[in-house]
């Protein structure tokens, strides 16, 4: 469904992605884990064509993004939902209008149908009754849930999540994780999530990829991650840097 082949990207004088190769299967939830500033969000932005690779290819459902024209890319993007780290809500539109925006722009649905669809999606994210609140009046967790409702309002084939639980309290984070799984199953979508929280990955993902030094170093199911002998993965999960071995850092 999503294939990145030897993608290289240089930003701000630094090599962020170095021949990153990744394959996400249709219908799965794939988590990309890695430390801050390792290029997780950059990887996600390549998938939706917000960034173009310096070298390498990005394939979505058999289409190479590099050869698509503006109209084709626009058409492809309608199949995506994207949850930004901050929610990225349009600040002068209320919650209901934010969720309704893709419907108003891309469908011929009438006012009543739009209201029904918006109410349904807000019910999915447990925000029913908050339609008239402005983004400035709601908490960070609520913004993410509104962002999620907006991302899935057009029934996308692919949903991308950028740090869906960062900065949230444990209860809200758990609710968001449950929502991601639920949304993926209800819409029969393919989901990719970038996170540095192992709970996000193990609770939600079918497979987890670990991003180190601009490339995916290990991919496995949560069970395989738990059993892995990969030192870098083990160090990362224990909160150690690459130079410190597990044996040195963990007291016997």
């Amino acid at each position: 469904m999503i294939r990145l082949v030897k993608v290289c990207k240089r930003l701000g004088g630094q090599n962020i992605l170095r021949e990153l190769t990744l394959h996400v299967e249709r219908g799965e939830v794939f988590a990309i884990m890695g430390g801050s500033g390792t290029g997780k969000s950059v990887t996600l932005k390549h998938m939706v064509g917000l960034l173009e690779p310096d070298r390498g290819e990005v394939w979505i459902d058999g289409a190479n993004l590099a050869v698509l024209n503006r109209a084709q890319l626009k058409g492809l993007r309608r199949r995506f939902g994207y949850l930004f780290q901050s929610g990225a809500l349009i600040n002068w539109l209320n919650v209901g209008d934010n969720v309704a925006l893709p419907l108003r722009e891309h469908t011929r649905l009438g006012r009543t149908d739009i209201q029904q669809r918006v109410a349904e999606r807000l019910r999915w994210v447990r925000l029913i009754g908050d339609e008239h609140k402005m983004p400035a009046e709601i908490s960070g967790g609520m913004k993410k849930r509104v962002g999620l409702a907006r991302a899935i309002v057009l029934n996308p084939d692919i949903v991308l999540y950028d740090e869906p639980t960062s900065g949230l309290d444990p209860v809200t984070a758990r609710a968001i994780r449950a929502l991601i799984r639920e949304v993926n199953d209800r819409l029969e979508a393919t989901s990719v999530m970038v996170t540095h929280d192992i709970l996000d990955a193990t609770d939600t993902a079918d497979r987890i990829g670990f991003l180190f030094d601009g490339r995916i170093e290990f991919v496995g199911t949560p069970a395989e991650v738990e059993r892995t002998d990969n030192a870098r993965v083990k160090n990362f999960l224990k909160g150690l840097d690459d130079q410190t071995s597990v044996a040195e850092a963990v007291p016997s």
């Binding site: 932005k45 994207y82 349009i90 925006l101 893709p102």
Partner: peptide, 8 residues
Amino acid sequence: DALEIMAI
């Protein structure tokens, strides 16, 4: 960016 991803 959100608008662009929503194909708006």
